[in-house]
Nucleic acid binder design. Structure first.
Length: 139
DNA sequence: GCCAACGTTGGC
DNA sequence: GCCAACGTTGGC
């Protein structure tokens, strides 16, 4: 199973909103970037991802699961753009901050660090395991 | 709120 | 096909 990271500004769509959607989940819509779209197209049902608060949070706060494969984005008529649905699985017991991630040599190649503008990105198994450990949370 | 970095657009 | 101009993102 591949691992991913989803970024959102908490003021616009935060972890609490995601949790409120329950097991039904919600479209991860509004993505207008080819790389991010291609990452979503590569996702499988049951893939897990981190939920990251950008801009005013700067920390990974929870784990989500892909609950619908890539489909057309209902917020646009432009058929170039797709999205998956995701649902909240569990919060991290201890959020992992960007500062902490930057402080870990093993995480210095994360896309989150290297390309801060990509909003949907892959995470390696090693990165996943370490961040879960830092978050005192089951992988 | 600022601005650097990045991605996209469009004129040539 | 190049690249300048523009818009957006996100860390600070």
């Amino acid at each position: 199973m591949a691992k991913w990271l989803f970024k959102s500004e908490p003021d616009v769509w935060g972890w609490d909103h995601q949790v409120a959607k329950g097991d039904a989940g919600e479209e991860w819509d509004g993505i207008r970037n080819y790389q991010a779209r291609n990452n979503m197209r590569a996702m499988a049902l049951g893939d897990l991802g981190f939920f990251y608060h950008s801009r005013s949070g700067l920390e990974i706060v929870g784990i989500v699961e892909v609950c619908a494969l890539s489909h057309s984005d209902s917020t646009t008529d432009d058929d170039r753009w797709d999205c998956v649905d995701i649902r909240a699985v569990r919060p991290l017991k201890q959020p992992v901050t960007l500062e902490q991630i930057k402080g870990e040599t093993a995480l210095s190649d994360m896309i989150l660090v290297r390309n801060s503008r990509l909003s949907v990105q892959p995470v390696s198994d090693a990165e996943w395991a370490l961040i879960c450990k830092m978050g005192l949370t089951e992988p």
